[in-house]
Write a protein that binds this DNA or RNA. Structure first.
Lengths: 333, 333
DNA sequence: TTGAAAGCGGTACCAT
DNA sequence: ATGGTACCGCTTTCAA
C-alpha cells in the first residue's frame, strides 16, 4: 500500500474532484463573492479531502510577492538581538508576513548570503555591522536600516547612543571620577561608535582629559576579562556593552579590586545579569526597535509612492546601580 | 526619466541581451559543462549588466523545493531560544538552507501560522510547547522535534532533564535539605515536566517527602517573584528555570531572607545572570540542540529512504554555586 | 553545445 | 457565477 496521499495535492486535482475549473477553486478559496455558496462548499470539501494547501511558490510567482521579509543581524549571542528580532517577528506577523533570519557572524560569504536572501523576500531589515553600504545600495527592494548609520534615501531606526553616553559620563563625573577608559571597539558597530563619541563629548565639555580607548576583539565576557588586564585602578571604565562590563567585573574580583572603590564600571543594554551584578548601565527599547523596523518596512513594501526616507532615534535610559560609585542612602536595584 | 532599471531583470532579458536562449542562460549560471566558456562569459556579462538574479519563486516552482526550512518556538524571551536558534541557523546555512522563524507565543492562530509556514519550507523543526501533536501529524513534510516529547515516527532531540534533576536533588540532600518545593508549571513544557519528574524520583528514592508543587503562570522574573510569596523559610526551592529562580532571589532579598541559609534556590539553563547571582543551576548545550536539529532535518529532507525515527538526549551539567547551600572552602563561580 | 517547449502551481483577465 | 487561458520566471527533457 503506497502512501500516495503524501504527495501534495494541486489545484488541478481539487478542481477535478470538485468538478469545476481551477479558476473556480482559486476563487472559492479566496474571494468571498463571485462563487455560489454551493460551489464553494463543494470545492472546500474536495480541498479538505485532498488536504490541499496552495503552493507558496506558485502563488508567489503569480502574485509577484513573497509575503515574507528578512532581517539581517551580526549574531544572536546575548539577549539584545534576540529581543529585537522577537519584536520584529511579532510585528511582521501582524502584517501577515513571514520572517527569514540571517546571521552574518562567522560567515565569509555574508554579501552573497544577503543577496540570496533578498530574492526570497519583499523587503529587508539590515542591522549594524553586517554588510557594506554598497551591498545595500545595489539591493533592489525596500530596505530599513536598524542600529546602523543612515544611508541616503533609506529609512533608519536607531537607539539613542551619544546623548545618553554623555549623561552617563556626567553621572560618573558627579561621583568624582576623573580618569576614564572606554572599553570596546568603536569600529565594531555604529552603536558603539556613538557611545564612544558621547563619552568623548561629555569629557571634553567638562574639561576632563580624554578617555583611554581600549579596543576589544569582541563584545563578550571573555573579551572583557582579557581587556581588564590593562586597566589601572582608580579608573572609571565605560564599556561598550554589558557583557564586556561583566567580564571586567569578573576580572576585577579575581584581581582583588573592589568595585566601585578601586574601579568604577558601567555597561550598556541592561541585560538581566546587569541587575544581579549591580551594574550601572543603559537600557534600550529592544523590542520597540524591531517593531518599528518591521512597521516601516511594511509601509515601504505596501506604499506605492516613494516617500522621503524616515529616521528615528528611540530614547534610551540610564540605569544607575552600584558599580559606578558610592551612592547615598537610596538602594539601587 | 523613469527608473525602469529598478524592475527586476528576468532570464528572458538576459537571454535576449546575450543573444542566446533562456535554457542556455540557465545552464551558464549553474552547470559547469554543457556550455562553451565563450558563451558563458557572454551570458554572465549580460547578467551582470542587467543585475540579474534568478527569481526564487520561479526556481522553487521549477525545482520543487524551497531551499529553506523553518523553526517554530514558543517565544524568544531569555537567551535560551536565541541560542538554540543561532545554532540552528548556522548549521542550516552550512547546508545552503535559509531559515524562517515563527514564534507562537501570544498568538491565537498558532496552528494556522504553522501550516502556512509549512508551505514555504522543505522541512520544519518544532520546539516545545507550540502546537499540538495533531497539527504536526498532518504536516506533509519532514519534521524534527526539539525539546519536546517524541511522537512515533518523528526524529526528536532533547536535553537531559530528569536525570540531572535527580543529581540536583541529591546535591541538595547532601546539604541537608529535607523540605522541597518545585516552582514552575510542569504542564507548561515537556522540559519542565521532565525536571519535575526527576525531582520527584530523586526524593522518592531518598525516602524524603515529596516536593510541594507551586505552579507559576509564566517562566519569567515576575512569575518567580510572585510565586516566592508562598514559600516557607527552610525550604529548598527547585525552580523550572533560571528566570524564576532569579525572581525568587529578588523576592527573598526584599523579604529579608538569606540565601542559602533561610532559603536554598536552584534554577535551570545557566544564564549569564545566574553566574552573577551565584545561582546553582543546570547548563544545557543550547547551540548544540539547534545544530543537531538542523542536521537531522537536512538529512530527512535530503535522504530518499525513510530511515527509522531517531532520538537523542543531549547531556546537561549541574553547575553548583552558592544558592543551594553552604560549601566548604572552594569558591564556586 | 544549443534551442524549443513542456511543465511547476498558482492568479486573474476575458468571455460566456 | 463559471470556464478558458495567458502569464509569472525558471528548470529540464528532447531534438537538432
Amino acid at each position: 500500500m503506497a502512501m500516495k496521499a503524501l504527495s501534495k495535492a494541486t489545484i488541478y486535482q481539487v478542481a477535478q474532484l470538485a468538478g469545476v475549473s481551477i479558476a473556480t477553486v482559486s476563487r472559492a478559496m479566496r474571494d468571498s463573492d463571485l462563487v455560489t455558496e454551493q460551489t464553494r462548499e463543494r470545492v472546500l470539501a474536495a480541498a479538505k479531502q485532498l488536504r490541499f494547501t496552495p503552493s507558496r511558490a506558485g502563488r508567489s510567482l503569480a502574485e509577484g510577492r513573497h509575503a515574507a521579509n528578512g532581517i539581517v543581524f551580526p549574531d544572536l549571542v546575548g539577549p539584545y538581538y534576540a529581543e529585537v528580532i522577537l519584536g520584529y517577528e511579532a510585528t511582521a506577523a501582524g502584517f501577515g508576513s513571514s520572517v527569514l533570519i540571517l546571521a552574518t557572524g562567522g560567515r565569509t560569504d555574508a554579501d552573497a548570503a544577503v543577496r540570496e536572501l533578498a530574492t526570497r523576500v519583499d523587503g529587508l531589515t539590515v542591522m549594524g555591522q553586517t554588510v557594506s553600504d554598497e551591498v545595500i545600495a545595489e539591493l533592489r527592494l525596500p530596505v530599513v536600516l536598524l542600529a546602523r548609520d543612515p544611508v541616503p534615501g533609506v529609512d533608519t531606526v536607531r537607539a539613542q547612543n551619544a546623548r545618553t553616553a554623555r549623561s552617563l559620563v556626567e553621572h560618573l563625573l558627579g561621583h568624582g571620577h576623573r580618569r576614564f577608559t572606554f572599553l570596546g571597539d568603536p569600529a565594531g558597530s555604529p552603536d558603539v561608535r556613538g557611545r564612544y563619541d558621547g563619552v568623548r563629548a561629555g569629557l571634553k565639555r567638562a574639561g576632563v582629559e580624554p578617555a583611554d580607548l581600549v579596543p576589544t576583539k569582541g563584545f563578550d565576557l571573555e573579551a572583557g576579562k582579557e581587556a581588564a588586564k590593562a586597566l589601572q585602578p582608580g579608573t572609571a571604565v565605560v564599556c561598550a556593552n554589558d557583557e564586556l562590563a561583566l567580564g571586567v567585573l569578573l576580572a576585577a574580583e579575581e584581581a582583588g579590586l573592589r568595585v566601585p572603590q578601586d574601579l568604577a564600571v558601567t555597561g550598556w543594554d541592561d541585560l538581566l545579569a546587569a541587575r544581579f551584578a549591580g551594574l550601572t548601565t543603559v537600557r534600550q527599547p529592544m523590542r520597540e526597535l524591531g517593531a518599528t523596523a518591521a512597521r516601516w518596512l511594511n509601509r515601504r513594501i505596501t506604499d506605492d509612492m516613494p516617500a522621503a526616507a524616515r529616521r528615528r532615534v528611540l530614547a534610551t535610559q540610564l540605569v544607575v546601580r552600584r558599580s559606578c560609585g558610592i551612592h547615598s542612602p537610596e538602594v539601587h536595584r
